[in-house]
């Protein structure tokens, strides 16, 4: 048996929030460079130039890449041999978010009530926490600041099993065609296939954590990713949505078992500032 003081979680979440908001992950930055080489539309090239400059300015001046510092999504893989001592996990994560957003000039964008008051909570809490208990004595935390412009472009479909691969591709293409221009292309498209009504969207968000260009380990799904990417780019929306060859930097898909009667497909759109940062904590000897 090992333990972790909740303050260690607070400190790590704070660091990861700051890092994720000001440093674009290397694979996404590389994706923008490759897009620049591939893009032929002049509007598209100008947008990519802006974005590449933006990455540099944000990194050098420690400014957030995007003014929308998101709702803070936090994936936690908690080693089951570790006991959390002190505050609860949600309270610890929220305290880390609070310190980062208040202390490092990140925009606070969360309102307490979605429908009536819509009053800003003032510290970007609560975070959205996805917890998994896993084997071992290590805690892995990944922070994903997720802007709402791209969340608003995302969708879920409960397809029939008979619709198969073609149905999945058509739905992904349709989602991007409808709202992709609003979501700051070039996009990264996360696709979650299978599970249930609530599990497919979380799977789609998890897919966004995989590095760009890194294919699904299952060959069939790797092939599907390639097909979906080709179809999405054939829409011609381009960087900024002004027209061009690169609508998406990548399409990343994850799958899980589902029911005999179902084929849930969730499409979680992410923008050109697809941000995430991860870190690990080791449990201490009791």
């Amino acid at each position: 048996m090992r333990y972790l003081d909740s303050f260690e979680v607070v400190k790590l979440v704070e660091e990861l929030c700051i890092e994720a908001n000001i440093r674009l992950p290397e694979d996404v930055a590389d994706g923008l460079v490759k897009a620049k080489e591939h893009e032929q539309s002049l509007y598209g090239q100008a947008v990519l130039d802006d974005l590449l400059q933006n990455v540099e300015i944000a990194r050098k001046e420690k400014m957030p890449l995007c003014q929308d510092c998101g709702m803070t999504v936090v994936f936690v893989d908690w080693g089951q041999e570790v006991l959390l001592v002190g505050k609860s996990l949600q309270e610890s994560v929220d305290e880390g978010v609070r310190r980062a957003y208040l202390g490092s000039y990140l925009r606070r964008s969360v309102v307490s009530d979605p429908l009536y008051d819509r009053k800003n909570t003032g510290d970007n809490t609560p975070a959205v926490v996805h917890l998994r208990f896993v084997e071992g004595s290590e805690v892995k935390i990944t922070v994903v600041p997720k802007g709402m412009g791209s969340e608003n472009a995302s969708a879920l479909a409960m397809l029939s099993p008979g619709e198969g691969e073609e149905g999945v591709i058509d739905f992904v293409k349709d989602v991007v065609a409808r709202k992709g221009q609003n979501a700051c292309p070039p996009l990264v498209v996360g696709v979650g296939i299978g599970g249930n009504f609530e599990s497919a969207p979380i799977l789609a968000k998890r897919a966004l954590l995989r590095p760009i260009g890194c294919r699904n380990a299952d060959e069939r799904y790797a092939g599907l990713e390639e097909k979906m990417l080709r179809h999405v780019n054939e829409l011609g929306l381009g960087p900024g949505g002004y027209g061009g060859k690169v609508t998406a930097l990548d399409v990343l898909a994850e799958f899980m078992p589902t029911h005999i009667a179902g084929l849930p497909v969730a499409v979680n759109i992410s923008c050109n500032a697809t941000r995430h940062a991860g870190g690990r904590l080791k449990g201490r000897e009791l």
Partner: peptide, 30 residues
């Protein structure tokens, strides 16, 4: 960038046209 002008032109509507190879499909209908 001017994306909609006083003559009613809309770049989001006309821009993707020449780059789209999925012809006959309506883009952004919703």
């Amino acid at each position: 960038l001017v994306v909609a002008d006083s003559e009613g032109n809309d770049l989001y509507e006309i821009g993707p046209g020449q780059w789209s190879s999925s012809r006959g499909e309506r883009i952004g209908e919703d």
